[in-house]
Design a protein around this nucleic acid. Structure first.
Lengths: 341, 341
DNA sequence: CTGAAAGCGCTTACAG
DNA sequence: CTGAAAGCGCTTACAG
């Protein structure tokens, strides 16, 4: 008995050929019951685990999927991850979550991610330069985009109806008599920021009102961003009666800063968020927001990826799935009549 | 020009041997400036990316590390992940976060994780059976344990001073006159639950008081767990004046349920958490808790792993690093005199 | 139903 | 400083 390892060792102790071991492992061709039993016994005896490197070297598959997120501490993304796992684990894929640390970090991490040859990758394409996008396309890695079309042949995308959600928020605020409405976006170059602002504009237009561009500031999709955004808005004017924020984290930061300035919510200023993370119901006053179906986004993205991975892929037309959103009215907007401080 | 791919294609267009290309890539032996330039030009021209499977097949290394967490939607873990990335990315390692979905899921996911042959793996060992632990040890994968010794030769561990933190919480509550103190743990078999309860006991002992075992219930480390825990405690008696929860999520759920029962916090009952997640400062009343230095735990774990990976490993004695914790007093405990409801 | 053999894309002694 | 060759552990035609 020589010092073989891996599949060769299994073959030797089972008294069969290496190919046969491989076949019982993969199930790619019929193996007699007796042989299968011998092989499985040998596998158990030796505690054999296939080497994924060797396997992927031949099969060109890694059976693993990456989710590349701009900020894993934003509670939206863990939910997307959980949704993807719901679908991927039963299908035999391992999901790796990779944190870029910031929107602009996504491009920086992309090279590392492509090197690893994941079978598929889900990502928010904001923060990707055109060059990054081209690299992704060339890599041949299956991509599913979260939030917007990435413009690669055969790459599907899932989004929630951001514009519709912000239109509902806008209608709600206008309906309660608010008129001096400011908007705090995330990164200016980001599509969610634009789409969400677009929804708000749409609400204004629907009510026959003009939206003033000077009511918009851009920061980042973080709590700090919300603080900065309020500061920037109040440099422009001080009579805001509502602040619409591009996500809940921004809204929570905005509330911090408004309170620090001695303003009362919602009496002086209403505040709204987006995503409906757990914290939205926990802050005081509780935050009016829009439910962004994060887990369902994850599930859908995973299913799209699996479908492409199973078929031969590029032939099918690009799929674009939009998930609807739901307005969640809470205390941060519900007092329609401004009172004195 | 034949249809070579990978390193062979690079070698061909650069006019050098395959080994030379490998050497400029790895830097494992000196290469002349001129040769290096030719090779790099060819790499750029072909858009060559090394195949990680082939590489790991020979080198026995994957340059990737896994963080296996019981629940990625618990905001504690994303922070640990960020801390690990702080250290790993500059060192050339990719961190994959893997979500077990629950404490008991950790064992189930372990097999998948070991198969992938990560160079190192960081995990909370709660939820691991002895068999799982044995599998880990046999796999030869570098392990760093979060929270407690895993009992594998050469495996280090990082913990925060849970017992100390709960002793401080206990002293704080006893110091404000609370005496009927209930404890809601997470999973009963989990070490954090036991350690944290131990800290509370220690505070009682320090004050010359007895802690009643009937004051303890175990649920799970989730918001739902907190709701269930309160229900269980109030089946036993109804005159609690403080509820100590094993983490912030439990505490938030406990507050939900106390409020539903018409109890006022902290006037009727004080509530405390552990971790100091963002939500702790956002709930109303804000939650007295203990800061658990999640990001620093991640950084430390990553450093321990890298040190083992760099050296030849097992010779060095097991390292055990304890990070101190800090009491954060907020509104959920600050009204010492019980009032009527 | 089973086996022998080629080859996936690298790294690493070995030789010069 | 550079190259030819073996081999890491698998999968997959090819043959029987």
């Amino acid at each position: 008995m020589t010092q073989k390892s891996g599949i060769a060792a299994v073959a030797e102790t089972a008294g069969v050929s290496v190919s046969t071991v491989s076949q019982v492992l993969s199930g790619n061709r019929p193996v007699s019951e007796a042989t299968r039993a011998k092989v499985n016994a040998a596998i158990a005896e030796l505690g054999y685990t296939p080497h994924p490197g060797a396997r992927s070297l031949r099969s060109r598959r890694t059976e693993s999927i990456a989710l590349l997120v701009p900020d894993i501490t934003n509670p939206f993304y863990p939910l997307v991850a959980v949704g993807m796992q719901d679908v991927l684990l039963p299908a035999g894929y391992l999901l790796s979550i990779l944190d870029a640390g910031s929107q602009s970090g996504t491009g920086r991490l992309l090279g590392h991610v492509l090197e690893r040859r994941f079978d598929g990758i889900a990502l928010h394409i904001d923060g990707l330069s055109d060059a990054d996008r081209a690299r992704l396309a060339e890599s041949g890695t299956r991509v599913v985009a979260l939030g917007r079309d990435i413009g690669i042949e055969g790459s599907d995308y899932v989004e929630s109806d951001d514009a519709g959600g912000f239109a509902k928020l806008g209608e709600h605020l206008l309906g309660t008599g608010r008129r001096r409405i400011g908007f705090i976006g995330g990164e200016e170059e980001s599509d969610p920021s634009r789409l969400r602002l677009g929804g708000l504009r749409q609400a204004f237009a629907g009510a026959g009102l003009d939206y003033d561009d000077a009511s918009t500031v851009f920061t980042s999709f973080t709590r700090d961003g919300g603080r900065d955004g309020v500061a920037a808005l109040y440099e422009r004017r001080t009579d805001w009666d509502a602040i619409v924020c591009a996500n809940d984290l921004i809204a929570i930061g905005a509330m911090d800063e408004l309170r620090r300035r001695g303003l009362s919510i919602p009496d002086d200023v209403a505040v709204t968020g987006y995503d409906d993370i757990d914290a939205a119901a926990l802050v005081h006053p509780s935050l009016t927001t829009v439910e962004n179906p994060a887990r369902e986004i994850g599930r859908t993205a995973a299913r799209l990826l699996l479908t492409r991975l199973a078929g031969d892929g590029d032939d099918a037309p690009t799929q674009h799935i939009t998930l609807s959103t739901r307005l969640v009215v809470r205390d941060s907007t519900t007092s329609p009549i401004p009172q004195e401080r």
